[in-house]
Design a protein around this nucleic acid. Sequence first.
DNA 1: GTCTATATCACGATAGAC
DNA 2: GTCTATCGTGATATAGAC
Lengths: 192, 192
Amino acid sequence: MQEFLACGYAATSMDRVAATAGVSKATIYSHFQDKEGLFKALIQQLVQKKFRSIFAPVNDRDLQADPTAALTQIANNVLDTGMGDSQYVNFMRLIMGESGRFPELARTFVRNIEATACQFFKQYLHDKAEELQLPDPEATGRIFIGALVHYLIVQEMMHGKDILPMERDRLVKNLIFHICPQESTPAMTNGT
Amino acid sequence: MQEFLACGYAATSMDRVAATAGVSKATIYSHFQDKEGLFKALIQQLVQKKFRSIFAPVNDRDLQADPTAALTQIANNVLDTGMGDSQYVNFMRLIMGESGRFPELARTFVRNIEATACQFFKQYLHDKAEELQLPDPEATGRIFIGALVHYLIVQEMMHGKDILPMERDRLVKNLIFHICPQESTPAMTNGT
DNA sequence: GTCTATATCACGATAGAC
DNA sequence: GTCTATCGTGATATAGAC
């Protein structure tokens, strides 16, 4: 996996995979049909692993707090997953870059990661829909996730930190503000 | 370019590039130093081309309309760019998948596409900040773009249409609602 | 089950004729 | 400027011994 994450699918050689794993190529080919079979198995395994590491810390009872605090906590959990973790960034590069040739792996990713996150937000926001005056919690959830993931993609994956600088807290505060305007007010950047 | 878009960088062979272009390999190598040089030149060219095709239709005076209508028009322009266009989807796959090994190309993309879009929203929302009660137009712009781009990524690039179905207008309406709650009210999906 | 050694082939890049 | 022909390398995958 380490090799695939670092080099992408096509540029990864089975020679290096074997060397890194400390076995011979023949051993690998006795366990997997071919390079494609190995890749699919490894990605599926990694999706499961990332799935657990993302949604383990969220299932706290941070959710009992008021929505502003809870959503801030959740947003920070999502960003913590990817912002510092170069392995996760490479994982996204790989699965997005190969989503054309391995559509089933992309769907596995969507089913496990994206759909779970959307389902979670949908449920949470549905429960708070009255309080927050949300007409469509599911759509709001996708906006929430989209803003966070896109921030991660531009800043980390696409090396945009210096070109489009934006403090993490600033994005989160404004995002919360647009979801719960009644309860939060971010710092002003613009007076007029 | 056609070959790189279809196969990715590493899986594209110079033999097929030459065949598709209708010239010999030697001809290509007389114009470009190596495969990497060809790739960089082609991507830079394509970034410019996409840059123009995205921002040409926006510069209308749709902007004179009320913010709800203007933002809806802009959102639809952004989505039109990518939703049906498989070439643009492959372009994103390529540039994201190779952003680890070609960071400068990723930065070129951010500088030309993302930064221009952010600058545009920042300016537009800044002008309407009072009317829309936006404390931080730049952050709001990034949330807006992020929600749209992430929708495009999940539905099209990651083949998520059937797993996470969501009508395009539904996302846009709710996005506008969260940016200008005073002026718009999307359809209710949730009564309680 | 795992190894060494190898078959087979396609790749990027170039030499030299026209 | 563009071509054909080719070089050397490194790729995937396997045969057969231990």
